[in-house]
Design a protein around this nucleic acid. Structure first.
Length: 305
DNA sequence: AACTCGTGGCC
DNA sequence: TGGCCAAGAGT
């Protein structure tokens, strides 16, 4: 797949964005010197669909408690899910736990530094793998998230927003923007994300302070509105996601296994409630004991073998 | 390829 | 107020 990035954009945009990033980057904990690739991996898991402000305190706690993959791997899954708290999408906690176990047992407790090995880990996809390579190891890798897709759509292609993901083409577009040298490419990757997160935002972009305002194709085109298809907004009230969240909230808060009656109290619709509880059991986020009571899944600490 | 999976803050 | 959004991944 070849990039559709106009040649003119390849010159100034990456350099200007990187320069702006060096001067204005937010002081996020996982960007501080001394952060290990493991720290970066944990941050990327937590940041999947979750705002920075909610991740920060949890990440700091996790790094203090589990500074290396093997430390998290030795924890019980239930404790990991409990520590995840209300970050949302708790299956991420399970997958991070499983990833830590794979890293500990199959990679000598070192986070892999190549995309293929990273993508083989549970919960690590195209974005997270490249984010670890770039931000954890300072290597050249096209990092494509929703922010970067929006920046490229506007500044390079002159569109109001990014359309549906075209994974191969998106990777090629960003790859074309990266300089050859590893360290500088990693900075550009971080800079493109940062630009999308704080300047080139989805709603009310701050073009007045944008470092690439002068060469932005969207500005040049008069900031046309996005007319393409939009991903349908997910509802939440009344969905299984809400019910699962309430059930899991009870299990997280409980120090001991809880009787079903306690779970029945969180949702009126019995059929939906039972379906959701069953799905939590299937996922492994919950488990049922012989006496009928329920707890977070994986209550027993992992046995070392 | 479309759908699912949590949670909370913001304009 | 409530639709919309926030560093995706798995199926």
């Amino acid at each position: 797949m070849t990039s559709t990035v106009p040649r003119a954009a390849l010159t100034e945009l990456p350099a200007r964005t990187a320069e702006w990033f060096r001067a204005h980057a937010r002081d996020l904990p996982w960007r501080r010197p001394g952060t290990t690739p493991w720290g970066v991996l944990v941050s990327e898991f937590m940041l999947q669909q979750t705002p920075v402000s909610r991740v920060e305190p949890v990440w700091l706690r996790w790094m203090a408690e589990w500074p290396v993959p093997s430390a998290l791997a030795a924890e019980s899954r239930a404790e990991v899910v409990r520590a995840w708290g209300k970050l949302g999408y708790p299956r991420r906690a399970m997958r991070l736990h499983a990833a830590a176990q794979a890293i500990a047992t199959e990679h000598g407790d070192r986070v892999p530094s190549d995309v293929a090995a990273l993508e083989a880990l549970p919960g690590v996809g195209s974005y997270t793998a490249r984010a670890v390579v770039a931000f954890g190891y300072g290597l050249r890798a096209p990092v494509v998230d929703t922010n970067v897709r929006r920046v490229v759509a506007r500044a390079v292609h002159g569109a109001g927003d990014a359309g549906p993901a075209r994974t191969r083409a998106d990777l090629a577009d960003v790859d074309a923007l990266l300089p050859a040298e590893d360290a500088e490419a990693a900075v550009v990757s971080a800079a493109l994300m940062e630009l999308g997160a704080v300047v080139c935002t989805a709603r009310s972009p701050r073009c007045g302070v944008c470092p690439v305002h002068a060469e932005c194709a969207w500005v040049a085109a008069g900031r046309p509105e996005y007319t393409g298809p939009r991903r349908p907004v997910q509802g939440f009230a009344g969905t299984d996601r809400q019910v699962r969240g309430r059930l899991l909230d009870v299990l997280r808060a409980a120090e001991h296994p809880v009787p079903k009656a306690e779970l029945d109290a969180v949702w009126a619709d019995g059929a939906q409630r039972d379906r959701c509880l069953d799905s939590l059991l299937v996922d492994g986020l919950a488990e049922q004991f012989a006496d009928g009571r329920f707890a977070l899944g994986g209550t027993a600490p992992r046995t070392t073998d």
